[in-house]
Simulated scan of single mutants.
Amino acid sequence: MDKYFESKRILVTGGCSGIGRGVVLELWRLGANVVALSHQAKNLEKLRSEYPSIEIACVDVRDWDKTRGVVDSLGVFHGLVNCAGVGLMEPFLECKPTTFDESITINTKAILNITQVVAKKMINNNIKGSIVNISSQASKAGLKDHVAYCASKGAVDAMTRVMAIELGPYGIRANTVNPTVVLTDLGREVWADPNKAQEMKSKIPLGRFCEVQEVVDVIIFLLSDKASMINGVQMPIDGGFLAT
Protein backbone atom coordinates (compact mmCIF):
# COMPACT_ATOMS: atom_id res chain seq x y z
CA MET A 1 0.00 0.00 0.00
CA ASP A 2 2.95 2.32 0.67
CA LYS A 3 4.00 2.24 -2.99
CA TYR A 4 0.44 2.89 -4.14
CA PHE A 5 0.30 6.31 -2.48
CA GLU A 6 3.82 7.52 -3.30
CA SER A 7 2.83 9.12 -6.60
CA LYS A 8 -0.75 10.00 -5.67
CA ARG A 9 -2.22 13.44 -4.97
CA ILE A 10 -5.21 13.38 -2.65
CA LEU A 11 -7.58 16.08 -1.41
CA VAL A 12 -9.06 15.81 2.08
CA THR A 13 -11.79 18.25 3.10
CA GLY A 14 -12.14 18.99 6.79
CA GLY A 15 -8.48 18.05 6.81
CA CYS A 16 -7.15 19.88 9.84
CA SER A 17 -9.22 18.34 12.64
CA GLY A 18 -10.82 15.09 13.72
CA ILE A 19 -11.07 12.26 11.21
CA GLY A 20 -9.90 14.52 8.39
CA ARG A 21 -6.65 15.35 10.12
CA GLY A 22 -6.11 11.68 10.87
CA VAL A 23 -6.54 10.83 7.19
CA VAL A 24 -4.20 13.64 6.10
CA LEU A 25 -1.43 12.49 8.43
CA GLU A 26 -1.79 8.82 7.50
CA LEU A 27 -1.67 9.61 3.78
CA TRP A 28 1.36 11.84 4.39
CA ARG A 29 3.03 8.98 6.26
CA LEU A 30 2.32 6.67 3.32
CA GLY A 31 3.98 9.05 0.89
CA ALA A 32 1.00 10.75 -0.74
CA ASN A 33 0.97 14.37 -1.80
CA VAL A 34 -1.88 15.62 0.39
CA VAL A 35 -3.95 18.80 0.29
CA ALA A 36 -5.94 19.60 3.44
CA LEU A 37 -8.93 21.87 2.81
CA SER A 38 -10.84 23.60 5.61
CA HIS A 39 -12.30 26.93 6.69
CA GLN A 40 -10.27 26.82 9.92
CA ALA A 41 -7.35 29.07 8.96
CA LYS A 42 -5.47 28.80 12.27
CA ASN A 43 -5.69 25.01 12.35
CA LEU A 44 -4.53 24.83 8.74
CA GLU A 45 -1.51 27.00 9.47
CA LYS A 46 -0.72 24.87 12.52
CA LEU A 47 -0.89 21.74 10.37
CA ARG A 48 1.44 23.24 7.78
CA SER A 49 3.91 24.42 10.43
CA GLU A 50 4.08 20.86 11.79
CA TYR A 51 4.17 19.19 8.36
CA PRO A 52 5.53 21.67 5.77
CA SER A 53 5.12 19.26 2.84
CA ILE A 54 1.34 19.11 3.35
CA GLU A 55 -0.49 21.62 1.16
CA ILE A 56 -3.39 23.59 2.60
CA ALA A 57 -6.40 25.40 1.14
CA CYS A 58 -8.72 27.64 3.14
CA VAL A 59 -12.34 28.06 2.04
CA ASP A 60 -15.81 27.86 3.56
CA VAL A 61 -17.54 25.01 1.73
CA ARG A 62 -20.89 26.75 2.22
CA ASP A 63 -19.83 29.18 -0.51
CA TRP A 64 -20.54 27.21 -3.69
CA ASP A 65 -18.74 29.44 -6.21
CA LYS A 66 -15.69 30.24 -4.09
CA THR A 67 -15.25 26.59 -3.12
CA ARG A 68 -15.52 25.55 -6.73
CA GLY A 69 -12.86 28.08 -7.73
CA VAL A 70 -10.45 27.06 -4.97
CA VAL A 71 -10.79 23.34 -5.68
CA ASP A 72 -10.37 23.93 -9.40
CA SER A 73 -7.18 25.92 -8.75
CA LEU A 74 -5.65 23.02 -6.83
CA GLY A 75 -5.22 20.92 -9.95
CA VAL A 76 -5.65 17.20 -10.51
CA PHE A 77 -6.20 14.57 -7.83
CA HIS A 78 -6.07 10.78 -7.72
CA GLY A 79 -8.25 10.58 -4.63
CA LEU A 80 -10.76 12.60 -2.65
CA VAL A 81 -11.97 12.27 0.93
CA ASN A 82 -15.03 14.39 1.69
CA CYS A 83 -14.72 14.74 5.44
CA ALA A 84 -15.97 18.29 6.12
CA GLY A 85 -19.19 18.15 8.09
CA VAL A 86 -21.35 19.55 10.83
CA GLY A 87 -23.56 17.98 13.47
CA LEU A 88 -26.49 20.19 14.49
CA MET A 89 -28.87 18.45 16.89
CA GLU A 90 -32.51 19.41 17.39
CA PRO A 91 -35.63 17.32 18.06
CA PHE A 92 -37.87 16.66 15.06
CA LEU A 93 -40.69 18.89 16.29
CA GLU A 94 -38.29 21.77 16.98
CA CYS A 95 -35.92 21.50 14.01
CA LYS A 96 -35.55 24.92 12.40
CA PRO A 97 -35.24 25.42 8.63
CA THR A 98 -31.88 27.10 9.18
CA THR A 99 -30.60 24.01 10.99
CA PHE A 100 -31.83 21.75 8.22
CA ASP A 101 -30.44 23.97 5.45
CA GLU A 102 -27.03 24.27 7.14
CA SER A 103 -26.80 20.50 7.58
CA ILE A 104 -27.62 19.81 3.94
CA THR A 105 -25.37 22.61 2.66
CA ILE A 106 -22.26 21.42 4.50
CA ASN A 107 -22.80 17.67 4.78
CA THR A 108 -24.32 17.00 1.37
CA LYS A 109 -24.28 19.88 -1.11
CA ALA A 110 -20.57 20.61 -0.56
CA ILE A 111 -19.76 17.00 -1.46
CA LEU A 112 -21.67 17.40 -4.73
CA ASN A 113 -19.82 20.61 -5.53
CA ILE A 114 -16.28 19.48 -4.68
CA THR A 115 -16.65 16.03 -6.21
CA GLN A 116 -17.94 17.42 -9.49
CA VAL A 117 -14.76 19.45 -9.91
CA VAL A 118 -12.40 16.67 -8.82
CA ALA A 119 -14.12 13.91 -10.79
CA LYS A 120 -14.23 15.90 -14.03
CA LYS A 121 -10.47 16.36 -13.84
CA MET A 122 -10.00 12.68 -13.10
CA ILE A 123 -11.98 11.85 -16.23
CA ASN A 124 -10.15 14.40 -18.38
CA ASN A 125 -6.78 13.02 -17.23
CA ASN A 126 -7.80 9.36 -17.48
CA ILE A 127 -7.28 8.84 -13.75
CA LYS A 128 -8.99 5.84 -12.22
CA GLY A 129 -9.49 7.51 -8.89
CA SER A 130 -11.22 6.81 -5.61
CA ILE A 131 -13.70 8.98 -3.71
CA VAL A 132 -14.58 8.33 -0.08
CA ASN A 133 -17.44 10.25 1.50
CA ILE A 134 -17.82 10.38 5.27
CA SER A 135 -21.33 9.37 6.20
CA SER A 136 -22.61 7.94 9.49
CA GLN A 137 -24.58 5.18 11.14
CA ALA A 138 -27.18 7.97 11.34
CA SER A 139 -27.85 7.47 7.64
CA LYS A 140 -29.10 3.95 8.37
CA ALA A 141 -30.80 4.31 11.76
CA GLY A 142 -32.97 6.96 13.33
CA LEU A 143 -31.28 8.74 16.22
CA LYS A 144 -33.09 10.97 18.70
CA ASP A 145 -32.56 14.71 18.06
CA HIS A 146 -30.66 13.95 14.84
CA VAL A 147 -33.35 14.68 12.23
CA ALA A 148 -31.30 17.15 10.16
CA TYR A 149 -28.09 15.15 10.56
CA CYS A 150 -29.78 11.84 9.66
CA ALA A 151 -31.36 13.42 6.59
CA SER A 152 -28.08 14.92 5.39
CA LYS A 153 -26.15 11.68 5.82
CA GLY A 154 -28.90 9.61 4.20
CA ALA A 155 -28.58 11.93 1.23
CA VAL A 156 -24.80 11.37 1.20
CA ASP A 157 -25.33 7.61 0.91
CA ALA A 158 -27.85 8.01 -1.91
CA MET A 159 -25.65 10.49 -3.78
CA THR A 160 -22.65 8.20 -3.45
CA ARG A 161 -24.55 5.32 -5.04
CA VAL A 162 -25.29 7.56 -8.02
CA MET A 163 -21.62 8.59 -8.17
CA ALA A 164 -20.65 4.91 -8.27
CA ILE A 165 -22.99 4.24 -11.19
CA GLU A 166 -22.10 7.30 -13.25
CA LEU A 167 -18.36 7.51 -12.51
CA GLY A 168 -17.72 3.76 -12.48
CA PRO A 169 -17.46 3.50 -16.28
CA TYR A 170 -14.48 5.89 -16.07
CA GLY A 171 -12.79 3.66 -13.51
CA ILE A 172 -13.60 6.02 -10.63
CA ARG A 173 -14.88 4.38 -7.47
CA ALA A 174 -17.12 6.08 -4.88
CA ASN A 175 -17.92 4.71 -1.42
CA THR A 176 -18.93 5.90 2.03
CA VAL A 177 -17.78 5.02 5.51
CA ASN A 178 -20.50 5.04 8.16
CA PRO A 179 -19.01 5.26 11.65
CA THR A 180 -20.67 5.20 15.03
CA VAL A 181 -19.60 7.80 17.59
CA VAL A 182 -15.93 8.59 16.92
CA LEU A 183 -13.68 9.78 19.74
CA THR A 184 -12.36 12.93 18.13
CA ASP A 185 -11.84 15.91 20.44
CA LEU A 186 -15.38 17.01 19.61
CA GLY A 187 -16.75 13.49 20.01
CA ARG A 188 -15.24 13.19 23.48
CA GLU A 189 -16.79 16.52 24.44
CA VAL A 190 -20.25 15.74 23.09
CA TRP A 191 -20.36 12.29 24.69
CA ALA A 192 -18.67 13.23 27.99
CA ASP A 193 -21.85 12.57 29.99
CA PRO A 194 -21.41 8.94 31.12
CA ASN A 195 -25.16 8.28 31.19
CA LYS A 196 -25.61 9.56 27.65
CA ALA A 197 -22.56 7.62 26.48
CA GLN A 198 -23.65 4.39 28.13
CA GLU A 199 -27.06 4.55 26.48
CA MET A 200 -25.39 4.59 23.06
CA LYS A 201 -22.71 2.04 23.97
CA SER A 202 -25.43 -0.36 25.11
CA LYS A 203 -26.59 -0.53 21.47
CA ILE A 204 -23.09 -1.37 20.20
CA PRO A 205 -22.26 -5.08 20.56
CA LEU A 206 -18.55 -4.32 21.01
CA GLY A 207 -19.52 -2.03 23.87
CA ARG A 208 -17.37 0.97 22.99
CA PHE A 209 -17.03 3.96 20.69
CA CYS A 210 -14.75 4.18 17.67
CA GLU A 211 -11.21 5.55 17.72
CA VAL A 212 -10.18 7.95 14.95
CA GLN A 213 -7.53 5.57 13.59
CA GLU A 214 -10.14 2.83 13.15
CA VAL A 215 -12.01 5.06 10.71
CA VAL A 216 -8.80 6.28 9.05
CA ASP A 217 -7.68 2.71 8.33
CA VAL A 218 -10.88 1.92 6.43
CA ILE A 219 -10.71 5.16 4.44
CA ILE A 220 -7.12 4.42 3.44
CA PHE A 221 -8.14 0.93 2.34
CA LEU A 222 -10.98 2.29 0.19
CA LEU A 223 -8.65 4.85 -1.40
CA SER A 224 -6.13 2.18 -2.29
CA ASP A 225 -5.98 -0.41 -5.06
CA LYS A 226 -6.56 -3.05 -2.38
CA ALA A 227 -10.23 -2.05 -2.76
CA SER A 228 -10.19 -1.96 -6.56
CA MET A 229 -13.52 -3.82 -6.93
CA ILE A 230 -15.38 -2.01 -4.13
CA ASN A 231 -17.73 0.61 -5.53
CA GLY A 232 -20.99 2.10 -4.31
CA VAL A 233 -20.95 0.59 -0.82
CA GLN A 234 -21.69 2.03 2.59
CA MET A 235 -19.12 0.62 5.02
CA PRO A 236 -20.28 0.57 8.66
CA ILE A 237 -17.56 1.14 11.26
CA ASP A 238 -19.92 0.76 14.16
CA GLY A 239 -18.99 -2.22 16.30
CA GLY A 240 -22.21 -3.94 15.22
CA PHE A 241 -24.65 -1.10 15.95
CA LEU A 242 -26.51 -1.64 12.69
CA ALA A 243 -26.67 -5.41 13.23
CA THR A 244 -28.88 -5.06 16.29
Score class of each variant (00 low, 15 high):
residue 21 R to E: 11
residue 30 L to C: 06
residue 24 V to N: 06
residue 198 Q to R: 14
residue 130 S to G: 13
residue 136 S to V: 02
residue 83 C to R: 07
residue 75 G to L: 04
residue 118 V to Q: 09
residue 244 T to H: 05
residue 52 P to F: 08
residue 207 G to K: 10
residue 155 A to R: 07
residue 123 I to T: 06
residue 200 M to F: 07
residue 186 L to E: 07
residue 53 S to G: 06
residue 100 F to E: 01
residue 151 A to G: 08
residue 97 P to Q: 13
residue 68 R to V: 03
residue 171 G to S: 08
residue 124 N to R: 14
residue 204 I to Y: 04
residue 229 M to G: 01
residue 204 I to T: 03
residue 97 P to H: 12
residue 207 G to D: 04
residue 73 S to G: 15
residue 11 L to M: 08
residue 98 T to Y: 03
residue 194 P to Y: 13
residue 112 L to R: 04
residue 131 I to R: 12
residue 130 S to N: 14
residue 207 G to H: 08
residue 114 I to G: 06
residue 133 N to A: 06
residue 36 A to Y: 00
residue 134 I to W: 00
residue 152 S to E: 01
residue 80 L to C: 13
residue 38 S to V: 00
residue 12 V to D: 05
residue 67 T to Q: 08
residue 115 T to M: 05
residue 86 V to Q: 12
residue 9 R to W: 01
residue 224 S to R: 13
residue 176 T to E: 00
residue 231 N to Q: 11
residue 223 L to F: 06
residue 169 P to N: 10
residue 75 G to C: 08
residue 66 K to L: 10
residue 119 A to N: 07
residue 31 G to H: 10
residue 129 G to R: 11
residue 6 E to Q: 14
residue 210 C to E: 12
residue 69 G to E: 13
residue 22 G to R: 10
residue 133 N to S: 09
residue 172 I to D: 05
residue 27 L to Y: 05
residue 86 V to F: 01
residue 117 V to R: 11
residue 22 G to E: 02
residue 28 W to I: 01
residue 31 G to P: 07
residue 113 N to K: 03
residue 16 C to T: 06
residue 60 D to T: 09
residue 55 E to R: 15
residue 70 V to D: 06
residue 141 A to H: 05
residue 140 K to F: 03
residue 207 G to V: 01
residue 37 L to P: 01
residue 189 E to F: 07
residue 36 A to N: 04
residue 149 Y to T: 09
residue 10 I to H: 09
residue 225 D to G: 09
residue 43 N to W: 00
residue 21 R to K: 15
residue 189 E to I: 01
residue 226 K to L: 14
residue 108 T to M: 11
residue 15 G to P: 01
residue 151 A to L: 09
residue 227 A to Q: 10
residue 233 V to T: 15
residue 45 E to M: 10
residue 188 R to S: 02
residue 204 I to G: 12
residue 99 T to L: 03
residue 50 E to Q: 14
residue 228 S to R: 15
residue 201 K to D: 00
residue 172 I to P: 09
residue 168 G to C: 07
residue 232 G to R: 11
residue 220 I to K: 14
residue 219 I to E: 04
residue 38 S to M: 02
residue 49 S to N: 14
residue 48 R to G: 03
residue 197 A to K: 10
residue 52 P to M: 08
residue 103 S to R: 11
residue 240 G to A: 11
residue 193 D to L: 02
residue 144 K to D: 00
residue 220 I to A: 13
residue 88 L to W: 02
residue 12 V to K: 11
residue 29 R to H: 13
residue 202 S to C: 01
residue 170 Y to Q: 11
residue 169 P to G: 12
residue 241 F to A: 08
